[in-house]
Design a protein around this nucleic acid. Structure first.
Length: 459
RNA sequence: GGCCCCAUCGUCUAGAGGCCUAGGACAUCACCCUCUCAAGGUGGAGGCACGGGUUCGAAUCCCGUUGGGGCUGCCA
């Protein structure tokens, strides 16, 4: 048997959908496992909805995930003539017929087509669309690696459109014609296409009766918490968004692979490249999968913690914007166990870069309560101690411990106002390491500045 | 409405008739550790939608019910 040919065929109508990413991944895995060919085809037939930058976004997203393609990108819009020619041949052969627009319903949309033009023998003319004449009898069976052999009565298939009244090709026509021309052998796509597949097969047989039909694999849908297909309108679905939020590409690939499939040995954490040999479309589950952000976060946090220091440094740099990453580098090991996403780093260490920390009043009030009337004495002692002690974490800590003891406060309480003084917040990376990185001068200055904010008449 | 698909802890899943007293992961709860917050460690709670069959034996096979979803566009 000839080497398989698979394709990912996204439409450039917006950001890259995670569902498309998962479909691309499974196509890629199957292509790589079998030594087949992975084709990228941009389905931009709907000129009105295309976004020029989206096609580029598709390619960059695939690259980001590490999914390389062997052919393409092909652009469907550039194959318009071939699609139209195929459609006209279909009309000529009686597989399709011309049809007038349907009257508008009260809601302003055209009514559902009822087959009224089937036998009118209308000519091709401006304003008329071309429709496929679906068989009235018989049934069409789809051979699906994941779902078995669903069979559809042909009578329920509507006479779907091939060409718009503008003359432009529609999805099914372009999709099938291209799959024929590109000799696609495996159509791996979302389950939402399953119901369209009998139409796909009928069209294929009409255009290229001698070409063997591809084998199908309809992947389970990725759904939201309401178990509905992920939608761009209500759900967070763009890969670009996940990238910008600081999810690691290898984690996204790993997580997406687990939606509907798992390696035979049951392990959950893996690189997609390591799982090629174990992958099998036949092992893909058939029930829909919820996209669980919590689990993605857990995976991402784990992966961040496993990063080597220099790797982490490189990955964090773009998330710091204009800030010099070298400044935070000494604190990175402490930051590493505290972030789940890369975009959490900047707000966690902003105090190192800003002239004044972002002051959180609630944190300060809480710190004052923990130290009651001793805040001023405590901060005074810390400022004095820090001015003279060796500038390393242990010594810096000892100063706070001693200052606390002198005020009758344990370290847990004593560190609170000091932390707010330095970082502006009640939570953050370990205080003493942070102080060391901040620098003696600035640290002491901030403690003194905080001293001025202690209420004169403490409760 | 019609057609099609689906159904194991809250979630992702393991499970292809006896290995199941249903395993793992995330989430959750408790405890330990602890300068905040994390991380880490230990332990706990939690599921085969329901009803019929088939079988010596069913989470696994069959039928039905219920529930959920998809498609039904001159979108893809």
């Amino acid at each position: 048997m000839a080497a398989p040919r698979l394709r990912i065929a996204p439409s450039p109508t917006g950001l890259f959908h995670v569902g498309t990413a998962r479909t691309a991944l499974f196509n890629w895995l199957e292509a790589r496992r079998t030594g087949g060919t992975f084709v990228l085809r941009i389905e931009d037939t709907d000129l009105g909805r295309n976004l020029v930058e989206a096609a580029d976004g598709i390619q960059r997203s695939l690259e980001w995930l590490g999914l390389d393609w062997d052919e393409g990108p092909y652009f469907q819009s550039q194959r318009r003539e071939r699609h139209v020619a195929a459609a006209l041949e279909l009309a000529e052969a009686g597989f399709a017929y011309w049809s007038d627009p349907m009257p508008l319903a009260p809601d302003g949309k055209p009514e559902r087509y009822d087959g009224r033009d089937r036998d009118r023998g209308l000519d091709r003319s401006p304003g008329r669309a071309l429709r496929f004449r679906s068989p009235d009898e018989g049934a069409t069976t789809v051979f699906d690696l994941i779902r078995g052999e669903p069979t559809f009565p042909n009578a329920v298939l509507e006479d779907f459109g091939l060409l718009k009244s503008s003359g432009d090709p529609l999805f099914l026509l372009a999709n099938v014609a291209d799959d024929i021309d590109m000799a696609i052998t495996h159509v791996v796509r979302g389950e939402d296409h399953l119901s369209n597949t009998p139409k796909y097969q009928l069209l294929w047989a009409a255009i290229a009766p001698s070409a063997p039909l591809p084998v199908f694999a309809h992947l389970p849908l990725i759904v939201n918490e309401k178990r509905q297909k992920l939608s761009k309108r209500r759900d967070k679905v763009s890969l670009e968004q996940f990238r910008d939020d600081g999810y690691l590409p290898e984690v996204m690939g790993n997580f997406l692979a687990l939606l509907g499939w798992s390696p035979p040995d049951g392990r959950e954490r893996f690189a997609i490249g390591d799982v090629i040999k174990e992958f099998s479309l036949a092992d893909v589950l058939s029930s829909s999968a919820y996209f669980d952000l919590k689990k993605l976060d857990a995976f991402n946090g784990d992966a961040i913690r496993e990063l080597a220091a220099d790797d982490l440094f490189e990955r964090i740099t773009p998330f710091l914007g204009t800030w010099d990453p070298a400044r935070v580098q000494p604190l990175l090991p402490e930051v590493q166990t505290r972030v789940v996403r890369l975009d959490e780093v900047a707000p966690m260490v902003d105090f190192l870069y800003l002239d004044e920390p972002v002051w959180d009043d609630a944190s300060w009030e809480k710190a004052l309560r923990q130290t009651t009337g001793a805040t001023a004495a405590l901060l005074g002692a810390v400022a004095q101690g820090w001015s003279a002690c060796p500038w390393e974490a242990e010594a810096v800590k000892a100063v706070v411990v001693d200052a606390g003891t002198a005020s009758g406060l344990n370290l847990k309480k004593a560190q609170a106002p000091v932390r707010v003084a330095l970082t502006g917040r009640a939570v953050g990376p370990p205080l003493f390491e942070s102080a060391v990185v901040l620098g003696r001068g600035e640290a002491v200055r901030r403690v003194r500045a905080a001293l001025d904010r202690v209420p004169a008449l403490a409760p």
